[in-house]
């Protein structure tokens, strides 16, 4: 696919954000989990993670993430990148993300058998299946998740020069 085509798609996404009345927050999530064959970038994910600490933004982010996670096979990148973003949010986002996805674990768990084979017979579902498996394991291992969240917070504090 040419870059130009993706540029076109990006423009379309901007238009859709506008016509469908998505908020800035939702547009950010949509950008981070788009069909572009790259990303989401660290900056994008971090931005969304910080927004999860605001209750209004949190609700909007979960709503959009839910939509993307339940997208159809052809849009496997939506699903895959939503899982990537979710993984990041579980580590660096607000505790509410963890609570929400523990409650709705089945959304992730049932993606362990996600299937999509493209017109050339290439299995593109494998990425989604692996990621769904990893995140399910993480969500079910309370101790590990807590530890990883602590380490992450530590690292962030050190990088901005705050003492722990």
């Amino acid at each position: 696919m040419s870059t130009l085509q993706h540029f076109g798609k990006g423009a379309l996404r901007v238009a859709k954000n506008y016509t469908k009345g998505y908020s800035d927050t939702q547009a950010k999530v949509r950008d981070a989990t788009s069909n572009d064959p790259w990303g989401p970038s660290g900056t994008q994910m971090n931005e969304v993670a910080q927004m999860t600490y605001n209750q209004n933004d949190f609700v909007e982010i979960m709503e959009m993430l839910d939509k993307r996670l339940n997208d159809k096979g052809k849009n496997w990148r939506h699903v895959f990148k939503s899982l990537t973003l979710l993984d990041y949010l579980l580590h660096a986002g607000s505790e509410n993300v963890v609570i929400y996805f523990r409650d709705n674990l089945y959304i992730i768990k049932t993606l362990k058998e996600f299937q999509y084979v493209d017109e050339y017979g290439k299995d593109l579902g494998a990425n989604v299946r692996q990621k769904a498996k990893d995140i399910t394991n993480l969500l079910q291992d309370e101790g590990r998740l807590r530890e990883e969240r602590r380490t992450r917070a530590h690292m962030r504090d050190r990088m901005v020069g705050r003492s722990p």
């Binding site: 339940n70 159809k72 096979g73 709705n104 089945y106 959304i107 049932t110 993606l111 058998e113 996600f114 299937q115």
Partner: peptide, 14 residues
Amino acid sequence: PKQKHVRKCIVYTW
């Protein structure tokens, strides 16, 4: 049976 349809049934019960 297509997994996407089976999945929707599972998700419904939850």
